[in-house]
Each structure stands twice: as structure tokens, then as C-alpha cells.
Write a protein that binds this DNA or RNA. Structure first.
Lengths: 251, 251
DNA sequence: AGCGTTGTTCGTACGTCGTACGAAAGTCTC
DNA sequence: GAGACTTTCGTACGACGTACGAACAACGCT
């Protein structure tokens, strides 16, 4: 009577084999990711995700043991975005590393909360694929294992450090109220006026009164965050080529 | 009768001017820092700090508007540790930047949670002093404002990226159960066995079965995290010297 | 001496969070 | 049908940050 009714319509009768769960981990991770991107990482709660999926909160715990595991899933979903289709990976190590690093930067900048989130998460499969891809990028260099590892680690560290800083800046730029920004500007100007920061004052020069973001951008000669990142990367890779005796791509 | 009793003992009578608050922000920040260092950042709660100080929870809100402000205080306390006494700052830009970066690395590695915490915090006074000190380090280079800014930003990015990764590793090493580590090792070995990761497998070579930490350390030739960091830094600074036409310290 | 003012402490309460527990409901095998 | 299983999820607990406002102490006035 409850459900086995023989005359029940196809539409209401579940498909055979429908003992499969309603959701998949990918689905859940994607939902969580969407929330994080639109409302910030702190808006991602088990209740919120479940509500978005139209499920009970505790249902999620059938797919995942703790929230940390769910965050690990989100992280792995992001690392999937980072991967470059193998055929698009340039042959020369310099170009390949640049491509991998730039791609990583772009993706991480789209999800600036990711770096804060992955604190407890161990490496997932897509993280390993990213690592593998980085190794592939330097495969042709003839470096030994230790040198390869150090090189790609160096690049990854720079990427993540840069995202950490730029992401913060960008978050403050968008999230922070204009009032708070103005407050900070007043504070900074007052500090500069004390004379305790001669180099900083000299650096900003005439721009001292401007709002810091504009001053920063003008100091960079109008370069975008991305260009600044890439020029730093180029500098780093030059140093590597010099120190490790690698060739640069002729162009 | 309640307190104005004229015959009251000195010992029980408060000092004049004792309407001053019981605590200082520095005190509170130091307490919070101690908790974070010994029990992890997640153990830092308003209630916990207050209990440590022997005060009511809400008392803290007289000194601080929100918990985020308190975290900003903690962050600034850490940045104070980062500062190098000016007379100890080497004259040559290369040595000076190396000293600043190494010092920053050491301090941040002692408080690995700091990078995750400062997400919302705007620059505090000690952060500004660190920035000023970095500028002082490159003051003698003759670079223009834009180049100086980009150079110290590059170094800072690398430092923070490296701490982010090493700190994670170290946290996993200490916090994580041996059982979890073993589980991960099994998983990683299985992944390598799939053949999807030829470069990674080749990298680890004979060490494939070992525990990852040992393998990593052996790949690095027994170098400590600190040495690895410094060698990456050296590479980076070489690149900068080359690209920007700066001299290296004769030695 | 008494009183209002102001600075400082903190108890209570609300809504949020992660999640332990175990009961319900559906599906499969006999 | 009767069990055994998978899958869903309602309820409840103890943490969290913090809004609100009462309590209390020290001072400047009359």
C-alpha cells in the first residue's frame, strides 16, 4: 500500500537498481564549490550544502565522514581545473613550467579561499596529477631527481605565495566596505607622516595621499596582477636556468 | 560600607588610578598566541582566552570589537618577531634580503597557522615595519621604485608559499596519526602502480615503498627544510641580480 | 556625604556550527 | 512475506561568536 502498488505510474515508480544513492561526491563537491565562489568559503556549511541539494543535513555524512573530507573533495575539484590537457603542454621546460604555473595561478585566483581551506587535506588524486604534470614539464631538462623536485617546488611555492597575497588584496578590495578602506588609508598616511617609514614614504612619493590600490597599480606601471606574477615567474625561471645550466627557449 | 571603609588595609585597597583596565591588548594577544602555539589555532576561542586570563568571556570585547580584530593583533605580534634589529641588517642588498627572508621564514614556521589566520586582517603596524625593512634592504641597489617593490614582493611571495607548504607538511607530520600516514602511503603506492604517474614513479625510483617523508628527505640529499628554502631563495635572488643588473656580494 | 557620570566587567541568551545517534524508509534476497 | 542491506534524515548536544544590558567601581560635582 505504501509503495508496492502494482498500478503505480512509471513516472512515480523508481528505476530499477535505484538503490544507488541519490548523489555523488562530485555533485556534492560541485555544490559546495558553487557556494564558496558566490558567497565565500565561510558560507559553506553542511546545512547550507544539504539545503542546496534538497537533502537532509545528515545525508551528507553518508558520502563523507567529516567536513574536512568534504573540503578535501572541493580542493581536489579545483586541482582538476588546474590540469592542462597533455597535448597542450609545450615541449621546452621553460614554456611548459610557465604554462603550468600560469594555469595554476589563474585557477587559484578564481578560488582564493582554496589556499586557506586545504590546510588539513592530504594530497588528493588531482593534486598528484598536477605534481606529475609539473614533473613532465621538466622531464627534458636532464636534471637529476633532486634538482627537478626542487625546481618545481620552487615554482609552486611562488605561485601559492603570490595567490595568497593577491587573493587577500582582491578579497579586501571587493569584500571590504569603502569606509573601511578609507579608514585604513587615513591610518597609513598618518603612519607615513611620523617619519618612521622613510623608505616607504619615498617609495610612494607623490602618491602618498592616493588610495593604496591606485598607488600600487600606478607603481606597477599599470601592469595587471597577472602580468606582475608572470614577470616574477620569468625572473625566477631565469635564475633557475642560470644556476642549473639550462637553456632558454630561443625566440 | 561597601568599600569606602576608612580603616581598610592598604593591601586590600586598590591603588589610585586603578580604574585602568585590568588587561592590555598586548597581554591578550600574547595569551592567544600561546594557546595557538601549544594547542593549535582552532583551540583559540574567546572563551578559552578569557579563561586563561581569569576573566569573563565578554570582557575581551571591551578591548576588541570582534574576534577578527583579535586575530589581527596576534598577527601583528608575530610580525614584530619578524623584524631584524636595524644594526644587524647587512649592507649589501643580497645579504640583507636573505637575512630578512630567512628571519621571516623562521618565525612563520614557528607559527604555521599564521598564514591561514591573517586572511581578513589588513596590514598592522609591524607589517608596515617589515615592509619598510624590506625596502631598506634594497635601498642601495639603485633600482627604481617599481623594481624595488616587485623584488621584495617576489621574495615575500616565495617565503610565504614555502611556509604554506612546509608548514602543512610539518603539521601533518606531527598532528596526523601514524595510522593515517600509513593509509596515505598505501594509497600513494597504489596510485603509482597504476602507471598513470610515470614521472612521479621514476622520481621516487627505488624509494617507492618508503614512507613519503623519508623519501622526500632522501631526495633532498638530507637537506633540512631550512636549507632547501635558502637554496631556493639563492636561486631566486641570482635570477633577480641577473635580470636587474645587480651585483652579487663578493665572498 | 551624596549623586550622577563614566569606565570596566561579565552573566545571560540567541542563532550558528559540526556531528553522534538511531529510527525510518526503501530495495534486494530468500 | 521475512529478514538483511543500503540510504535518508530528524533530533539533540556541546561548542562557537557576540548582542544586550545589568552590575560594579572610581571619579567630579554639588
Amino acid at each position: 500500500m505504501t509503495s508496492g502498488e502494482s498500478g503505480e505510474l512509471i513516472w512515480t515508480r523508481p528505476e530499477p537498481g535505484s538503490r544507488r544513492p541519490r548523489f555523488t561526491r562530485d555533485q556534492i563537491a560541485a555544490t559546495a564549490l558553487a557556494i564558496a565562489d558566490t558567497e565565500g568559503f565561510s558560507a559553506v556549511s553542511m546545512r547550507r550544502i544539504a539545503a542546496e541539494l534538497g537533502a537532509g543535513t545528515m545525508t551528507l555524512y553518508y558520502y563523507v565522514r567529516t567536513k574536512d573530507e568534504l573540503v578535501a573533495l572541493m580542493d581536489d575539484a579545483i586541482m582538476a581545473e588546474v590540469l592542462i590537457p597533455p597535448e597542450e603542454l609545450p615541449a621546452h621546460w621553460y614554456d611548459a613550467l610557465t604554462a603550468v604555473a600560469t594555469r595554476t595561478w589563474e585557477v587559484l585566483m578564481r578560488h582564493p579561499w582554496a589556499l586557506h581551506a586545504l590546510q588539513n587535506a592530504p594530497r588528493g588524486p588531482n593534486s598528484m596529477r598536477h605534481f606529475e604534470q609539473s614533473l613532465a614539464a621538466v622531464a627534458g631538462t636532464g636534471l637529476d631527481a633532486s634538482e627537478k623536485l626542487r625546481l618545481i617546488t620552487l615554482v609552486d611555492d611562488y605561485v601559492r605565495g603570490n595567490v595568497l597575497r593577491c587573493g587577500e588584496l582582491r578579497a579586501g578590495r571587493e569584500g571590504g566596505s569603502a569606509e573601511a578602506a578609507e579608514e585604513f588609508q587615513r591610518y597609513a598616511a598618518a603612519q607615513l607622516a611620523t617619519g618612521e617609514f622613510p623608505h616607504t614614504a619615498a617609495l610612494f612619493g607623490d602618491l602618498a595621499g592616493e588610495d593604496p590600490e591606485a598607488a600600487y597599480s600606478s607603481l606597477m606601471g599599470g601592469m595587471s596582477d597577472r602580468d606582475v606574477f608572470r614577470s616574477g615567474l620569468a625572473l625566477l625561471l631565469r635564475g633557475a636556468a642560470d644556476r642549473l645550466g639550462l637553456s632558454l627557449p630561443g625566440r
